[in-house]
Design a protein around this nucleic acid. Structure first.
Length: 570
RNA sequence: GCGCCCGUAGCUCAACGGAUAGAGUACUUGUCUUCGGAACAAGUGAUGUGGGUUCGAUUCCUGCCGGGCGCACCA
């Protein structure tokens, strides 16, 4: 529709003798009383041809009115020279029908057709807890994956996990000292125990000289796989913690592509080889280490160490190995990496180094970053008094939802499913509702309050819509097939869904979808609160039901883009 | 010190350079013998600060103030 209006305007400009190539906007005004679309063309042109913008606007409208397509009801001049387009009843009725036809495909586009996009996100480390940062990165990465997928791209979900290095040695040391986890306990409990061994081992490393020495020996043996006992402990701990991550991914709705869970143990030697091959070309020796002088290429970059003076590869080198491996394995058109902002500057340097070795990759690497999660209440401990991890936050959220639905008329299985779906939604929405730039403040109480600006509110609104659709099956709609002349705000919002997704993709910002859905839900609730549908004297019942159904479909598809499921009831 | 990001109602967040800066929450008031009240309707309340560019600036440039992150052998 937007393109159609743009073309109409271009034709008119030609007709009235303005052939200049001028860039102008066609957008949705904030207020529906200013039309469904609006353009600033007259104001942009007026100056160039030194004319009064309002007069020019009048003239353009006069031309437009000569040949108005059926989708446009009327065109008006307003304000300083805006031209406002009001869409017709026919347009809205058609778009409702279109949504009902397209169903789960409603909102999909071909914007990224035949493009392959890899998204790497989450990146937790085996032997360590799944913390809140991982939860954030996962929510954002999953949503971005779904947005590009909906835009027609072949999407590859990838994950990168540090399964070797000092943190692993500390955990293995802890396991040797305090004993292996109880195999009768759940995977999650065993993983928590291993996480505790890591943190205890880490403390000893800092405070106890002997422990430090032992851990360094263990670290070396893990790399070499030279000690039977250590290998057994390592293999078991790695498996348990990875299995625990899988359980979390399942709850969060993430499935990484087979073969695209990359591990540091495999990646590190690949990176090291590349760096060593490029010493003297890209990398230099300095104080016994191999470094990259970023500032030689761009004043805003800095120097980073790629191989330390003991000859060991650093994270920078591994990143090179990872990037090259990704492109060799899947050859994506674009490779997106999602991490916290603290890695922003580091990544710029690494990507510069990579693009010197592989110039063709420069424009295909994208890094998007997000802030940290802070807590409104200041309480950093979970309900059980432990440090809040991503996993504990998730379970606390689900438990609170469970308490809320405890007394409802639902089966135990339904209650459990609902707590999972709604608990995840509360967290994800809190993360995804803001733009990615700065830190977010997480208010635990607010996110599960179910009011207004929350994931559960959106789900609740969808459930209400679904409920009335179900109820309508037993309602006699005969002779209730008139179409109202008046166009509701709900209709004016609903057809914009594909444009919102496009906008979200262009900026790689999921919050546009979240903001839109909240606006949409409030518009639905307003419609619902003011319109009696299943009553005998509603001659518009059939159309109203269609409208509600198209709302439900839009909300469901929109929530999916945020990685949130829509429950049947709650 | 240098670089990157950010300062919007009491609080948490929106606003492709456009119209009267929108929501939620909190507070005040009203609606309803509910097609799921976890609702609807109304009111109060904001662009850190000084310049500049523009027909038009929360948005772009710049000075200052205030926060976050990063700046060589951690990941």
């Amino acid at each position: 529709m937007k393109e159609q209006i743009e073309n109409l305007i271009k034709d008119v400009l030609k007709n009235i003798g303005i052939i200049e190539d001028i860039s102008f906007n066609v957008e949705h005004p904030d207020d529906f009383k200013n039309g469904d679309y609006s353009t600033n063309i007259a104001m942009v042109c007026a100056k160039k041809i030194s004319k009064n913008p309002r007069e020019l606007a009048e003239k353009i409208v006069e031309e437009l009115n000569k040949n108005l397509p059926k989708e446009i009801g009327k065109v008006e001049v307003a304000g300083a020279g805006f031209i406002n387009f009001y869409l017709s009843r026919e347009f809205f009725t058609d778009s409702v029908n279109k949504i009902l036809e397209e169903k789960e495909n409603w909102g999909k586009s071909n914007l990224l057709k035949s493009k392959k996009i890899m998204v790497e996100y989450t990146d937790p480390n085996p032997f360590k807890p799944f913390h809140i940062g991982h939860l954030m990165t996962n929510a954002i990465g999953e949503s971005i994956s779904r947005i590009v997928e909906f835009s027609g791209a072949e999407t590859i979900r990838a994950n990168y996990q540090g399964d070797v290095g000092p943190h692993v040695a500390k955990a293995v040391y802890g396991l040797m000292k305090f004993g292996m986890p109880d195999k009768n306990k759940t995977v999650s409990e065993q993983a928590q125990y291993i996480g505790k061994c890591y943190s205890d081992g880490s403390n000893l490393y800092d405070t106890d000289e002997n422990a430090k020495k032992e851990i360094e020996v263990i670290n070396k043996k893990i790399y070499e796989r030279s000690n039977e006992e250590i290998n057994t402990i390592y293999d078991y701990g790695r498996k348990i913690t990875l299995d625990a991550f899988e359980e979390i991914y399942k709850l969060l709705g993430t499935k990484f592509k087979d073969g695209c869970s990359f591990f540091e143990s495999v990646i590190a030697p690949i990176g090291e080889k590349i760096v060593r091959e490029n010493i003297g070309k890209v990398f230099d020796e300095s104080d016994g280490a191999i470094v990259f002088h970023g500032e030689n290429y761009d004043k805003k970059l800095h120097t980073r160490v790629f191989i330390n003076s003991q000859g060991l590869p650093t994270y920078e080198t591994k990143e090179i190995g990872l990037t090259v491996t990704k492109f060799e394995k899947e050859n994506p058109d674009i490779s997106i990496v999602v991490t916290a902002t603290e890695q922003a500057e580091y990544m710029k340097v690494v990507q510069k180094a990579i693009s010197l070795i592989h110039p063709d990759l420069e424009s295909r690497m994208k890094h998007i970053t997000h802030g940290m999660m802070k807590f409104a209440s200041g309480k950093m401990s979970s309900r059980k008094g432990n440090i809040v991890t991503g996993e504990s936050l998730l379970h606390d959220s689900m438990n609170i939802v469970f308490e809320k639905v405890k007394d409802r008329e639902l089966t135990e299985i339904e209650k459990k499913e609902i707590s999972e779906i709604v608990g995840v939604s509360a967290l994800k929405y809190s993360i995804l509702k803001s733009s990615l730039g700065s830190d977010i403040v997480y208010d635990f109480e607010k996110s599960i309050s179910f009011d207004g600006d929350s994931g559960p509110y959106l789900q609740y609104t969808a459930v209400r819509a679904n409920s009335i659709i179900k109820k309508a099956e037993e309602f006699n709609t005969e002779d209730k097939n008139e179409i109202p002349n008046q166009i509701s705000d709900l209709e004016k919002l609903i057809y914009q869904f594909p444009e919102v997704i496009k906008n979200s993709y262009i900026h790689l910002e999921p919050h546009h979808v979240a903001t839109y859905l909240t606006h949409l839900a409030s518009s639905f609730n307003s419609f619902y609160g003011n319109t009696k549908i299943l009553v005998e004297d509603n001659k518009y019942a059939i159309y109203h039901l269609k409208l509600i159904e198209s709302f439900y479909q839009t909300m469901k598809n929109g929530l999916w883009l945020l990685g949130i499921e829509t429950p049947e009831k709650m």
